[in-house]
Amino acid sequence: MATNKPIGDNARVGAVRGRSQVFNPVTGLWTKRDTQTGRFMNVKTSDNTPFKGVRKEK
């Protein structure tokens, strides 16, 4: 029988709120943005996959 993870293990369940991501075709990297201010927050440089759980902009 499956069990829930322990509380406090820093495992997120569901989507990240207040964030979006966009692909930069010039650099080939994904960039995370704040939806309230529109400021760029983070760039994922480790691999070419998008951020997990963050919605994508068109």
Rank of each mutant, 00 (worst) to 15 (best):
V16W: 01
A2P: 05
S46K: 09
V26G: 08
S46C: 11
G38K: 05
T37D: 06
V13W: 02
T35Q: 13
G14K: 12
W30Y: 03
F51N: 02
F51H: 00
Q21R: 06
D9C: 15
M41S: 07
I7S: 10
K44E: 00
T37P: 04
P50Y: 00
V13E: 06
K56P: 01
T3C: 14
N42S: 10
G28I: 14
K44M: 05
G18I: 12
I7K: 15
K5C: 08
G53K: 09
G53V: 07
Q36A: 13
F23V: 11
V16F: 01
T3D: 07
M41V: 03
R39E: 08
T45N: 06
M41Q: 09
P6V: 10
G53R: 08
N24H: 09
Q36F: 13
K32M: 06
P6F: 04
G14I: 08
F51Y: 00
K5W: 09
V22L: 15
G38A: 01
T3M: 15
K5D: 04
R17G: 01
G53T: 07
K44T: 00
N42E: 04
T45I: 13
T3Q: 13
L29K: 11
R17M: 08
T37Q: 07
D47Y: 11
G18H: 06
G18K: 11
E57G: 04
V13Y: 06
P25Q: 07
R12S: 03
Q21W: 04
M41Y: 06
T35V: 15
T37M: 10
K52N: 03
K32T: 00
N48W: 08
T49W: 05
T27S: 15
G14E: 04
N48D: 05
V16P: 02
R39C: 11
K56I: 07
R39D: 05
V54S: 02
T31I: 14
I7Y: 03
L29F: 02
R33H: 05
D9Y: 08
V26A: 15
R55C: 01
D9N: 15
N42K: 10
R12K: 12
D9P: 04
R33Q: 10
N10W: 06
V26L: 15
P25I: 09
M41R: 13
S20K: 05
S46G: 12
A2V: 08
V13D: 04
V13S: 09
T49L: 05
V54D: 01
F23T: 12
F51D: 00
P50F: 00
M41I: 10
A15W: 02
R19I: 02
V43C: 07
K56M: 15
G18S: 06
V43H: 08
N4S: 12
A2S: 11
R33N: 06
K56A: 13
T3E: 08
G14Y: 12
G28A: 15
L29P: 00
D34N: 11
T37Y: 03
I7E: 09
F23H: 09
E57A: 13
T27I: 08
F40L: 12
R17H: 02
G38S: 04
L29E: 02
N4K: 14
V54P: 02
T37N: 11
G53L: 14
M41T: 07
T45L: 12
K52Q: 04
K44W: 00
V16G: 01
V16Y: 02
G14Q: 10
K32G: 00
R19H: 03
A2R: 11
R12N: 01
P6G: 07
M1H: 03
T37S: 15
K52D: 01
F40N: 05
N42M: 13
Q21Y: 01
